[in-house]
Amino acid sequence: MAVDKEELKEKIVEFATKKSKFKSKMYIKDLYKADPDAKPREVKNAANELVREGRLEFFSSGSTTMYGVPGFGKSEAQQFEGEE
């Protein structure tokens, strides 16, 4: 049975926000845990919709793409531009 997408999106945001306090970037696999009943493809589609809505954001590790919640973790500017 397919999971309700809006419900799933809320679960993902809630899960990611909670996790972000410890580790601000997560893999798509980590997001599966937001709702164990959802299929990988459903989680992926929901997460990518959240990115379009600006509620999640992408981060690149060079070879992998990760998800983050805007506002958590080091910003691009903190890490690489002004620094110090």
């Binding site: 990115v51 379009r52 992408f58 981060f59 690149s60 590790s61 060079g62 793409t65 691009e76």
Partner: peptide
Amino acid sequence: HGGIVGVFGYGGGVIG
């Protein structure tokens, strides 16, 4: 390295 991945809504295509 920079963490930028892409343009809005894309998870790939750009390397920072």
